[in-house]
Nucleic acid binder design. Structure first.
Length: 429
DNA sequence: TCTGGGGTCCTAGGACCC
DNA sequence: TCTGGGGTCCTAGGACCC
């Protein structure tokens, strides 16, 4: 007998803000917001801040006065803190089922199929346990498919009565819920698709579920659109991926605090991005055959000349040696670079991965080169070890520069490293 | 003055092969 | 004069997600 799938989506409420509040309890009733890198725009907002009309992605400089007027606590993002707390949340969640997919820093899908429990109670228990043990408030949605569990979670966050725990296992309840959800709010339906769906007269999730012409859905919204529709109908299309699969692409890019004009500075930033991406790549034991670089001006500066370009280099023998990757990235950058442009952002992306151990030596590799590869693997291993023990960038290439970077990002409202620095531990009084 | 960063998947269309 | 058709692989770009 095939048991029906039961999936829970657990999502931390205003996660980054909740992390900041955890160490500043006096902020409990104040609006809180967390900014993106460079203190650019809001990427996390508490309900109090949402109520002030500050939308997701709102540029900080545009709402600065409003924030001051309403005494909003604004923070630069402190990802070291957030990932640390995320790990703690996920480890608590793992106790509720062995089958868990960590979907993002603040979300996880839990497979609860076959559990002999009262799911309403279970949802509340998950919520209360995380709150009690980690101090982060979460919402829980339980349903037969990922898309429906997302939707249940969404309703849970909005409804005062549900208090962040909603179970949609019966179709009757699903239909009631689906009617309350606008097409824009369905997981997998973005801005473009929402407009098209409305054009077909589909206004909410229930309309979408009931729309009979699946052929047309597939044609307009591709296979993914049809799968979303099936998921709304309770037919699972997306499996949980629980094996911590390797990334297929690893990227590192930044906007600059100040515009960059010289090739020298741009090269320095690219060397830093390449270093960072290579380190991540080695962590998952991959080597890459494609090194891509991009740079661009500031699209918001209408008076400046606009320029953006990207290109890549393919290499015969995949590598994860930082020194080589910097060299390749520079080759690409040198071709892209144009004088007279105010560069605002650049980045490096690595892809076409192979497993580190099973490198396919190219046909023309000589014994000497293979020895070199072994040496470089060992060198990278040592560097990674030292940097993880003594702090990032203890050992780095000269290419990354030594003095304070003019292009470095702005973080003026950074909270202390409560959990990742001995000299900044919170003080108990 | 000041507008993030890092991913995944799908499709159309070209290149190439027999 | 007549000028195929089907399959596979790769890539760029779009759309979406958090």
């Amino acid at each position: 007998m095939k048991t029906n799938q039961v999936v829970a989506l657990v999502d931390c409420n205003a996660f980054f803000c909740s992390c900041e509040r955890l160490f500043r309890p006096e902020l409990r009733n104040r609006p809180v917001g967390v900014l993106s890198n460079n203190d650019g725009c809001f990427i996390s907002r508490t309900n109090e801040l949402k109520a002030l009309g500050v939308s997701m992605g709102a540029p900080y400089f545009k709402v600065k006065e409003l924030c001051q007027k309403h005494n909003v606590a604004v923070f630069s993002s402190n990802f070291a803190l957030y990932t640390n707390l995320s790990d703690r949340v996920m480890s608590v969640l793992s106790r509720f089922t062995p089958v868990i997919e960590v979907y993002s820093v603040d979300e996880a899908f839990l497979d609860l199929t076959g559990l002999q429990v009262d799911f309403n109670e279970y949802a509340r228990e998950i919520r209360d346990t995380v709150e009690r043990e980690v101090g982060i408030p979460v919402s829980v949605g339980i349903a037969p498919t990922k898309t429906l569990s997302k939707l249940a979670n969404h309703i849970g966050k909005k409804s005062k009565k549900a208090k962040g725990a909603v179970v949609l296992l019966e179709e009757r309840l699903q239909n009631i819920a689906l009617k309350q959800v606008e097409v824009e709010d369905i997981w997998g339906v973005g801005r473009k698709s929402a407009v098209k769906l409305r054009g077909l007269g589909i206004k909410n999730a229930f309309d979408f579920k009931s729309y009979h012409n699946t052929f047309q859905i597939q044609k307009i919204f591709t296979k993914l659109g049809r799968m979303t529709q099936d998921e709304l109908r309770g037919i699972p299309c997306y499996e949980l991926s629980v094996f911590g699969e390797k990334k297929k692409e690893i990227m590192c890019s930044r906007s600059f605090g100040n515009p960059v004009t010289s090739l020298r500075e741009l090269r320095e930033s690219i060397a830093n991005f390449a270093t960072n991406a290579s380190e991540k790549m080695r962590k998952q034991k991959s080597s890459c055959a494609v090194i891509e670089v991009f740079c661009r001006s500031n699209p918001f500066s209408l008076n400046d000349e606009q320029y953006g370009a990207s290109s890549y280099q393919k290499v015969l023998t995949p590598t994860n040696d930082t020194r080589k990757i910097i060299k390749y990235a520079w080759n690409v950058l040198d071709e892209l670079f144009r004088m007279g442009i105010l560069y605002k952002k650049a980045g490096v992306s690595l892809s076409s991965f192979e497993c580190e151990g099973e490198l396919q030596p190219s046909l023309f590799n000589h014994d000497e080169e293979i020895k070199d590869d072994e040496k470089s693997l060992r060198l990278m291993e040592v560097i990674d070890k030292i940097n993880s023990r003594e702090g990032a960038n203890t050992i780095h290439s000269m290419a990354c520069g030594v003095d304070k970077k003019a292009w470095a990002m702005k973080r003026e409202k950074l909270s202390p490293r409560y959990l990742t620095g001995w000299n900044q531990l919170p003080v108990a009084k």
